[in-house]
Design a binder for these strands. Structure first.
Length: 84
DNA sequence: GAGCTGACATGTT
DNA sequence: CAACATGCCAGCT
């Protein structure tokens, strides 16, 4: 929260409730820099922490985008969570 | 300390 | 409508 941009992004993504998806732009905005959506993806990419549901972060277009564990898994998880 | 990289977004062709 | 090119920001090497 009071640390670098990456710490805030991770905290925000961790707070994303199940069945809910945020866009990189949304996360960046909550992080304090709506124009840093680029950095958001950069942070999540390096972040291999399973404690962080980075798969709940999608592109503004509504597409899944990418995922360090595999874009396929990301789509699977989102589909599974959306269905409940 | 400077430069390169990238899971994006927006605009134009 | 789809593809290409440019701009933006923070992190990593």
């Amino acid at each position: 929260m009071n640390h670098c941009f990456r710490t805030r992004v991770l905290a925000i993504v961790t707070k994303i409730p199940r069945g809910r998806t945020l866009t990189y732009h949304e996360v960046a905005e909550r992080a304090g820099s709506p124009g840093a959506y680029r950095a958001v993806g950069n942070v999540l990419n390096k972040n291999f922490d399973p404690k962080i549901p980075c798969h709940r972060v999608i592109r503004s277009d509504g597409t899944f985008g990418g995922y360090n564990r595999g874009a396929r898994a990301k789509a699977q998880l989102l589909a599974s969570e959306k269905r409940g």
